[in-house]
Each structure stands twice: as structure tokens, then as C-alpha cells.
Design a protein around this nucleic acid. Structure first.
Lengths: 257, 257
DNA sequence: CAGTGGTCTAGACCACTAT
DNA sequence: TAGTGGTCTAGACCACTGA
């Protein structure tokens, strides 16, 4: 057995009778060791058998812990060689807007949706092509502005095919995400989506809604929702004020302590 | 045993003697069933025991297959109830720039990096603060433009602390990612990174380098690399032409067939 | 060759769900 | 209470690595 590797194990304890799974206790403590820099990139972890023997647990349980860390990208394994601490991928660029409302709240603001317009329209040629429907087909049309502190931040325009002719629900006006709208009013199931993130400059109308000067740079997200046959059933355009919105992302796993 | 659930199993075959792991064969075929819409959202999969019994394999192997699908977000499990097909998250917004060069190539273009300038500078007050070093401290300074088809696409400016006073390697000029630069020339290990994605308008200098008119909207990515003590050791600014660059993202798991 | 991680088994007990 | 997924065991054989 390798002494330098066994060293870390002495700083790790598990409680077999705990309700917290053993694999989780292990993964957590190893990840802390890595985060704190106790184990450096490309250094080897103890082998699976060593860990299993040291704690008196099954090797499968050890593997489960290691899988969690590997999935998190914190370690990598090499068959026949061992398990090693990974180097954080610092240049990879991933941006995440999963919970837009949350991000605004984290800036200490309370987002508020205001419905500017909601009505049924007949598709013109452009829209008919976007939604893959007949000319003059019925569509739901929404315009929403999201504000925080009475300051407009996002301007959204949405279209959905209106096949069911069902009334528009109160909840849909609260947070009318495109896939929910599509599910409620089209006859198909929304199953796929395409999003395009671009930069743009505001038009006169957009400038007026957002309260910014003409040609202000903005994020533009175009989203199309498709059903299982890849037919478009909803289309939306979101304009995020560039002077108020930025995407921030942290990578790496070493904390200051 | 439930007949409607067992139905799917008859369309799935595994080869126990194959070099391809059983769990992988299973996961692949289930994911195809889900993709094709054979199993709809919130429908139950056969139970783990059923699947194991049907194929004559261990339940642990079945669980491994199911874990893969759950990790991919295609199914979810509920203790005591069963395993169900998930609903794709269509409104989540995730953008990924991991391999910038690849994305350019997929548009049929060959990216080419051109070094505009590379020299050692003394930090002014602004830079010294950004890199957390003394005024007039030595820094490496890079300016790079990435072109495709002789058309400029990205303009990058990078600073790294220059502690080791090591010569600049040829490879670093080829693709000088900020974390590699920081690793080569600072005394610390790059372990964390912060990235900010913004929209901006080109300055006169940027317009000249990118060959666009003044105030063209652009993506602006600011990246800071930190060592394990959270001290900044490198700083970079990347400007992506907004008229030539967009981020596209597909979500969902139903294919057309 | 001995040692590593990768796969797989055939059990076991548990917490939780529905009836 | 019967059935579900969640955890865990104590083995096994394999492909691969390095000496």
C-alpha cells in the first residue's frame, strides 16, 4: 500500500449507521479534500480496494462515491492505472439562464411581469412559415415586459398556434413560458426546442418599451418550440437589456478558506 | 406484472456476450424508445425487478442503465412508486461555448489565430488592481485576432502575471487559452475562473481590428483566472462579432424519423 | 506478472408508496 | 401488506497498465 495516498484516508471518517448513505459521506469528504487543495491535480487517490479495505466497506460502495466525483468532473479514472484529481476546466464557457427570476432576485430585486397585450391574431405569411401553419391560421399573441424596481429589463414577444380555442388561463399570464403556452393551446406535445442567443440593437418600439435610447445593444434570444414531429408550434423573442443584464459564471473547485 | 409496461421490453434485445456493457445496451435502447416517443412523458417504465427478470440479468445492472438515463434527465425515479419518463426542460437556457474552434469549423470555416502583439508590460494602476499585483509589476500582454476565411471574428486581449520570466512558447501563441498562460508564467496554479458575458458596442480600435463599423453590437466576455488563494493571476477580454456569431442550443429528446 | 479500474452477480435490508 | 426504488455486500471475471 502507498503511504502518501493512504494519508488522506486518515482525515476521512464515515458513519455506517448514519441515515446518510456511505457513498455520499465519502464523496462529500473527498470533494472537500480536493476543493481545499489537499489533493492536487493529477495526484492519485487511493485505489478502490484500499479505500474499501480501510473503511471496511464494499468496493461497489466506493465506486459509487467515485462515480459521483467523476460525474462532477472533479476526478478522472484510468483503467489499469488509478484514479486522479482532475484539472478544473477553466476555459470552457457555459452560461446558464435556468431560473431567470432567481437571478434577478439575487441582485436584490423583485421581478414583475406585466402583460402588454394578449390576443388572437391571424398568421401573416412570415408567422405562418415560422409556425408551419396555414396563412391566416389562428395564433395566440403575447407581449410581456419584465420589470424590477419599476425598471424594464426584458421584453418578450410570443406566438403559439391556437388550435384548442381554450381560454387563456390566469396562470399563463403570470409566467407564460413558451413550452407551457404551447402545451395548453396547440394540439401537439412540446418536445423539442431551439434557442438562438444573439446580440442586437433596439428598434424604436423596443427602445420605448424598455426605456432605453435607440440602438442600445441587447441580448436577443429567439426560441422555437417543436412537437414530436418536429413541427414548430410556438415562437418567441426575448430582448434583454444589455446595460442591465450580464451572465456570470464561476468555474473551478478551490475555495478560499 | 403490468402488461402495458412489459410491452416495451419485447422490442428491446441485449447481447450478454457482447463487448458492449449490458447497462449501456439497455440505456441506449430505452433512450431510443423515449426519443422516438414510444414512451410518453410521465409514463412508467417497467420496474427494475421486471426488467432484470425479463433479461435474466442482475437488478444492479438494470439500475446502472437507469442511472444513466436519469443523469441525462430523460427519466425520473420515485421511491416506492416507480420510474417515469421525464418531460424535457425546454425553457431552461444553457449556452455552451466549450469548443469555439469546432463551432466555427462546423460552419465550414477554418479558424486561424493571428498574434497582433505579445510583449511584457508594466502594470498600470488599473491592471495592477485587476491582477492583484504591485504597480509596475511585470505582465505578459497578448493581443490576438481569430479569423476565418480572412474575415476577423474574435478579438482577444489577455494579461498574465509574468513571475517566472520564462520565454513564451510557440504553442502558447497557437492557442493561448488564459488558464494555460497563467499556468506557464505565474507562480501559482490556476484553479478558479470567473466569466462575464455581456453585450457591448465596438470602440474605434476594436472596429478597426474586426473590420466592422463603429458601435457594432458585440459579445464581450471578460475572464479572470484565480489561484487557490483566490488571487487573480490572469485577465482577458474577448470580443465576438455580433453580426457573425450566435449561440445555438437544442433541447429535448424527440427526433424526427 | 501483480495491480488497477470496469462490469456483473445474487443476494440482503431499508424507506417509502399505495391499497 | 405487497411492491417500489435506494443502499450495500462479498464475491467474481475482465481488460488494461506498468514493471
Amino acid at each position: 500500500m502507498n503511504n502518501s495516498r493512504e494519508f488522506y484516508l486518515k482525515q476521512i471518517t464515515i458513519d455506517k449507521s448514519s441515515v446518510i448513505p456511505i457513498y455520499y459521506q465519502l464523496a462529500k469528504q473527498f470533494s472537500e479534500k480536493i476543493r481545499s487543495g489537499s489533493i492536487l491535480p493529477d495526484e492519485a487517490l487511493p485505489t478502490e480496494s484500499e479505500i474499501a479495505a480501510y473503511f471496511g466497506i464494499s468496493r461497489m460502495t466506493v465506486r459509487r462515491a467515485i462515480s459521483e466525483l467523476a460525474a462532477a468532473g472533479m476526478i478522472y479514472t484510468q483503467r489499469g492505472k488509478g484514479t486522479f484529481v482532475a484539472r478544473p476546466k477553466l476555459d470552457k464557457i457555459v452560461f446558464n439562464l435556468e431560473n431567470f427570476n432567481e437571478e434577478i432576485r439575487q441582485q436584490g430585486l423583485e421581478p414583475h411581469r406585466k402583460l402588454l397585450e394578449a390576443r388572437i391574431v391571424r398568421a401573416d405569411q412570415k408567422l405562418a412559415r415560422k409556425l408551419g401553419i396555414d396563412l391566416h391560421g389562428r395564433c395566440l399573441y403575447f407581449r410581456v415586459v419584465v420589470t424590477a424596481n419599476n425598471e424594464p429589463l426584458v421584453y418578450e414577444t410570443k406566438y403559439t398556434v391556437y388550435a384548442k380555442q381554450r381560454p387563456i388561463l390566469e396562470t399563463e399570464l403570470k409566467d407564460p413560458s413558451l413550452s407551457v403556452l404551447a402545451a395548453s393551446h396547440s394540439n401537439s406535445l412540446p418536445t423539442n426546442s431551439k434557442k438562438i442567443l444573439m446580440v442586437s440593437k433596439t428598434t424604436e418600439e423596443e427602445s420605448a418599451v424598455l426605456g432605453v435610447s435607440l440602438h442600445t445593444p441587447v441580448f436577443l434570444i429567439i426560441q422555437t418550440i417543436f412537437d414530436q414531429d418536429q413541427n414548430p408550434i410556438a415562437w418567441g423573442k426575448s430582448i434583454y437589456r444589455g446595460d442591465r443584464y450580464k451572465l456570470i459564471r464561476y468555474d473551478g473547485w478551490y475555495k478560499k478558506e
